[in-house]
């Protein structure tokens, strides 16, 4: 038993007494990155399966969330950098072992595809915006190209969007030093959570009851997958040795228990799950409420993961 541990002369800024290097910027970025990935993936699938009539908003309105959401997320990411002048250094190299390096290049790949899918569907999806941007010099030439090759680029967008969604999770799971993060299953959780939040956001755009019903059904499936994956994450940590068990303690009686079980699992997962089931059974439930809860759940999940992970450690001093 450790009676007392005194560490003298450390207390480094952001490192002691417990690591807190990443503030609100990283969770917000991970949330928006996941949302953007989900949005592009759903839009691409709607285009590939030619669901223009059945899913008009997923087909033509959702794609714009990808470049806009990711751009806001990247501003947050930029704000987190301590040496902002050196941001270009991400793009003068490729470090094969660094998830963050993979991520920065995936982001560069993601942008063109998200913009092509946005411009290709802008006329039907956002006619007012189309009227403003269509006469602009470069856009004028780009739009016919995007419209013509829409389906082909939608195909390519599927792996690109999936890799962005997965990367947001690997970014955390690749750190051996933080037992709470060090689980490969975080990557699929973040991907599914990103898809779920994008479906929820799509509900805000959708006007067609048939489409709303389909989106609610899909979101229900996504949330169920999320629940299963989170259960697997917890089982993995429970059975994973002292470090993992100690890290799990953070959400099992520790400082993040309320956040995790009440705000995330309760309000962000279970409540929308119940509301969606009720809605599909024919009860009158505002799908705006459900969608808001799902988005809230996705955001608070990123906050809990990023913060709890930083607290978890191998050395308790």
């Amino acid at each position: 038993m450790k009676e007392i541990t005194i560490t003298t002369n450390k207390l480094n800024h952001l490192i002691d007494p417990s690591l807190h290097i990443w503030g609100w910027e990283i969770p917000v970025y991970l949330f928006l990155g996941g949302l953007a990935a989900g949005a592009l993936l759903i839009a691409a699938l709607a285009i590939v399966y030619e669901q223009k009539k059945k899913l008009p908003s997923a087909y033509s309105q959702l794609a714009i969330v990808a470049p806009v959401g990711l751009s806001i997320g990247m501003v947050a990411l930029f704000l987190d950098l301590e040496y902002k002048l050196h941001v270009f250094r991400f793009y003068t190299t490729f470090q094969i072992t660094s998830p963050m390096s993979w991520g920065s290049w995936i982001l560069m790949l993601f942008y063109p595809f998200s913009i092509i899918l946005t411009l290709g569907t802008l006329k039907e999806g956002w006619p007012k915006l189309y009227k403003v941007v269509a006469p602009l010099p470069v856009v004028k030439q780009l739009i016919p190209f995007c419209q013509k090759n829409l389906k082909q680029f939608a195909y390519y967008s599927i792996p690109v969007a999936t890799s962005l969604g997965i990367y947001t999770g690997i970014l955390l799971s690749a750190f051996v030093a933080r037992p709470f993060w060090n689980s490969a299953i975080i990557a699929p959780i973040f991907l599914v959570s990103g898809i779920s939040t994008a479906l929820a956001l799509n509900l805000f755009f959708s006007k067609k009851p048939e489409e709303q019903n389909f989106l609610t059904k899909m979101d229900l499936i996504a949330i169920l997958f999320e629940v299963i994956l989170i259960a697997l994450l917890i089982i993995g940590m429970m059975t994973g040795g002292t470090q993992k068990a100690e890290a799990l303690g953070l959400i099992m009686g520790g400082a993040y228990t309320t956040h995790f079980w009440i705000f995330f699992m309760g309000i962000g997962i279970m409540l929308p799950l119940i509301l969606e089931i009720m809605e599909l059974k024919g009860f009158k439930v505002s799908h705006y409420l459900t969608a808001t809860l799902v988005l809230f759940g996705g955001l608070i999940f990123r906050f809990i993961m990023v913060n709890a992970g930083q607290v978890s450690t191998w050395v308790n001093y």
């Binding site: 690591l19 290097i21 987190d80 950098l81 040496y83 991400f90 190299t93 690749a174 050395v315």
Partner: peptide, 15 residues
């Protein structure tokens, strides 16, 4: 070359 992204800080088990 350092951008201050703090990935290395998070990755160090010894802080």
């Amino acid at each position: 070359k350092c951008t201050g992204c703090k990935a290395c800080v998070a990755s160090c088990p010894y802080d």
